[in-house]
């Protein structure tokens, strides 16, 4: 399911991303010389962008252990941005949903500074968590490729509908009588009656006071 942006620090022998063959993942488009901007961080560049049938993968050209991945289920919207006031270069603007929004970890120990460094320096071979990143810009050196890139992203996004039954419903549906009954307020009231009855029968507090006898 949607897991937001994650970092990858491994790549296949041909320099591209490892593909998830289980999901019949294929590369749909390769865009060289693409800068990436995560949230408000400064641009990291250059890198190569791989658009697959499942995910967006950006791999640094300089550091073979550096890269980021976001699956299409997490890429909730994307757009072409050409306004220089918004960003100095034309780019793809996108929003990412990390699944569990308002992640407690980032809310509570939310000191942003330095949060990313340990992941890269210490955890080689493992995957970093960037689920707090909700905005990403992809800045291709060749701005004329933006329209095509946008279209490829649309096409691949459409290949990835949400799994059925994963929708976070505003209204929850009940499918059988048991479910309905278990959710009825006071639905297990019958049990409460039994417990209360037992309590009344056995609880010494309800017995007649015998203090005078035992006291003598």
């Amino acid at each position: 399911m949607a897991r937001g942006l994650v970092s990858v620090n491994e790549r296949s022998e041909d320099g591209g991303p490892f593909l998830e063959t289980v999901n019949e993942e294929r590369i749909a488009h390769v865009q060289p010389s693409v800068g990436i901007v995560l949230g408000e961080s400064p641009a990291e560049q250059p890198g190569t962008l791989y658009v697959t049938t499942r995910r967006l993968v950006w791999l640094s050209d300089e550091d073979v252990h550096k890269g980021y991945v976001v699956d299409f289920l997490s890429l909730t919207m994307h757009a072409i941005s050409r306004d220089e006031d918004a960003y100095p270069q034309p780019c793809i603007y996108s929003q990412i949903d990390g699944g569990e929004d308002e992640d407690e970890e980032y809310e509570e120990d939310g000191t942003d500074d330095g949060a990313e460094e340990p992941l890269e320096s210490e955890n080689h071979g493992s995957v970093g968590d960037f689920s707090h990143v909700t905005e990403m810009r992809l800045v291709p050196r060749d701005a004329s490729s933006l329209d095509h890139l946008f279209q490829v992203l649309c096409d691949c996004a459409a290949l990835n509908p949400d799994p059925e039954g994963e929708q976070e419903g505003e209204g929850d549906w009940f499918f059988n009588e048991d479910e309905v009954m278990s959710n009825v307020i006071g639905g297990d009231r019958a049990n409460n009656h039994v417990d209360l009855a037992e309590l009344l029968m056995q609880d010494p507090r309800f017995e007649d006071a015998d203090e005078e006898e035992s006291g003598t």
Binding site: L75, T76, M77, H78, A79, I80, S81, R82, D83, D85, A86, Y87, Y93, D97, F150, L153, C154, A157, P161, D162, Q167
Partner: peptide, 16 residues
């Protein structure tokens, strides 16, 4: 969302 002003076309995932 001031930075979104610039966006002239966009794709929105149905689920959101």
């Amino acid at each position: 969302y001031p930075h979104m002003l610039s966006v002239k076309n966009c794709f929105i995932r149905g689920s959101v």
